[in-house]
């Protein structure tokens, strides 16, 4: 088994117009900048981007928004300082936004990856973000029924990987990356180092079964 791709372009080639794409990262850490740039080159449009943030400055997701490739954003916090491209597209009505509480976003993604039909969370109960959703009271406490959130693709950043797709991470660059790899039909990973030797099983964070493609991108921005 060898899941390694020749280069970034080959790795993102399967992403088609209108696809849903999870993108790992939080703030500036753990973002697959190499894969995002390659996706931009590849030219897929009408994308639904699922990520914690909506990009900042002129890098990462902001580049996709600037280029007009994104039709919809599902995230918890689109208002990072410098998120000008999201704000511009949103104000012009060119991008739809679904705001999801961060823990609910992570858990909806996990539910999709774990084959669950959803879950009940107290998060958001009684607030605007629960409007129109089914609720239940259990032992006197209110809960909101949240649905699983799968995606066609995930773009993942990891520190190291092997040809089986096993991944290890560095510091807070882990964030949404492992759970997104689980939830996407096709998870594409850029790794700082693609190891010729198998990773030590004790240090594997994301088992290779959740990964379809892995490519080396040494730069750590």
């Amino acid at each position: 088994m060898d899941k390694s791709a020749e280069d970034l372009a080959q790795a993102v080639a399967p992403v088609r117009d209108g696809a849903s794409v999870m993108i790992g990262g939080f703030g500036s850490s753990g973002i697959p900048f190499g894969l995002i740039d390659a996706l931009l080159e590849q030219g897929a449009t009408g994308l639904t981007v699922i990520s914690n943030n909506a990009g900042a400055g002129e890098t990462g997701i902001a580049k996709l928004l600037k280029a007009g490739c994104v039709a919809r954003v599902i995230c918890s916090y689109p208002r990072t300082p410098g998120s000008i491209w999201f704000e511009r597209r949103f104000e012009a009505g060119e991008v739809a936004l679904e705001v999801v509480p961060q823990g609910t976003l992570a858990e909806r993604i996990r539910a999709a990856g774990a084959g669950l039909g959803g879950f009940l969370t107290p998060t958001g109960y009684g607030t605007r973000l629960a409007e129109g959703k089914e609720t239940r009271v259990i032992d006197g406490r209110g809960y909101v029924l949240e649905a699983p959130l799968p995606a066609d693709f995930a773009l993942i950043r990891a520190d190291r990987g092997d040809r089986w797709g096993n991944l290890g991470f560095h510091a807070t660059a882990r964030n949404f990356n492992p759970v997104m790899a689980m939830a996407a039909t096709h998870a594409i990973v850029e790794v700082r180092e693609l190891s010729d030797l198998p990773l030590d099983p004790e240090t594997v964070v994301t088992p290779g079964i959740f990964v379809q493609s892995v490519v080396q991108y040494g730069m750590r921005p």
């Binding site: 916090y77 999201f86 936004l97 705001v99 509480p101 961060q102 823990g103 607030t127």
Partner: peptide, 16 residues
């Protein structure tokens, strides 16, 4: 309404 809302982790924190 023109200003995009951003919830982050606040709703999860306050319930837990």
């Amino acid at each position: 309404e023109t200003y995009p809302p951003a919830v982050g982790g606040a709703m999860d924190l306050v319930v837990g």
